[in-house]
Simulated scan of single mutants.
Amino acid sequence: MERARAFDMLEAATAALARLRHAATDSPDRPGKIFLTADLISRNINLASEAVLVTSGQPTEDREFAARALTVLDGIAQFKHPSITHFLIEALGHLAAADPSRAFHTAATAVRTGDEYTYDSVAAAETTKFIERYLAEFREVVIADDKLLTSIRSVLHAFVDAGWPSAISLAYRLSEAFR
C-alpha cells in the first residue's frame, strides 16, 4: 500500500516536472530546480531498484515494482542531463528483465546523438555494457521486435558518433550479428 502511494506521488511529481519545465519562464533558477528534482527521482528509483547494490547482475524479480518504476523513468527520460541519464540507464539495466522492450525504448528516449551524456567515458562504458547485455540475454526479444532493434541501433549510434571505440566495435559486431 505504501509503495503504491509512493509511486503515485513519483508519477504525479514527474508529470508536474514536465509541465513546469515547459512553462519555466518566470524565474531564472527554476529550470535548475526542476532538473535537480528529476535527478533526485532518477537516483531514488536507481537506489530502490537496488541496481547499485547488486554485484551479481541479478535483475529485480519484483515485476510490480519494475512496472511502476518504468512508468516513472519514462517521464524522467525527457530530462537531458548526464547525471539523470546515468542513473536512469543503470536502473533500466536492472529492471530490463521485467519488460525488455519498454526498458530499452525508455533508454532510447533518454539517449540521443549529440546529447552531453554521449561524450562521457563512463556513459559510453555503461551504455555499451547495457546494449551487450541486451544482445546476450534478450536476443530473442530483439530479433522479434524491429522497433527494439532500431532503438538499440539509435542509442549505439549516439556513442559511435561521439567516437567511442567500444561503441564502434559493438556497432560492427551488431551489424554482423543481424545479417
Rank of each mutant, 00 (worst) to 15 (best):
A6H: 12
G93I: 11
T106P: 06
R30C: 09
A162N: 06
A24N: 06
A177C: 02
R63A: 14
L148N: 02
A51F: 07
F35N: 03
I168A: 13
M1A: 10
V160T: 10
R133T: 09
F104Y: 11
L174H: 10
T128W: 03
K33S: 05
V122M: 07
T37M: 11
V155D: 00
A67W: 03
F35S: 06
S27K: 07
H94G: 01
T71Y: 02
T150V: 04
E64T: 13
V54Q: 15
V160A: 11
R30Y: 06
L156K: 10
A15S: 11
S49M: 06
T113P: 05
N46C: 14
A177R: 13
A98S: 14
P31K: 13
I143C: 01
S83D: 06
L20F: 11
V160L: 08
S42T: 07
A96V: 02
L174C: 10
E11V: 14
R102N: 03
A123Q: 04
I152C: 05
R102S: 04
Y172H: 13
F178D: 00
F178L: 12
A123D: 04
R139K: 14
M1T: 07
Y119T: 08
T128M: 03
L170R: 05
R68A: 15
E140P: 08
T150E: 05
P28T: 11
M9P: 02
N46G: 10
R112G: 00
D29W: 13
G114P: 07
L40P: 02
F104Q: 09
P100Q: 04
K147E: 06
D62W: 08
D8P: 00
L95K: 06
A91M: 08
A110D: 01
A162D: 00
P59K: 15
Y134D: 02
S166W: 03
E90A: 11
P28K: 15
T109N: 15
D8V: 06
S101I: 08
T127N: 01
A66V: 04
R43S: 02
S49F: 05
A69T: 07
F87R: 14
P82W: 08
I41H: 01
R179C: 00
T150L: 04
A167K: 10
T127H: 05
V141G: 03
S151V: 04
L40T: 12
V111E: 01
V142A: 04
D115W: 09
H94W: 08
T14V: 14
L148A: 03
I76P: 09
D39Y: 13
T128C: 12
G163E: 00
E61D: 10
R102Y: 07
E50S: 13
L47V: 10
L95A: 10
L95E: 05
E90Y: 15
E132I: 07
I152R: 02
H81N: 12
A97I: 03
A110P: 01
P28F: 14
V122I: 12
K147G: 13
E2Q: 06
L10W: 14
A107N: 00
R43D: 00
T109W: 03
L174S: 09
A97P: 00
D99C: 04
R63Q: 09
L47Q: 13
D29N: 10
D99Q: 07
R21Q: 15
R68I: 10
A171P: 01
F35Y: 12
P100N: 04
D39C: 08
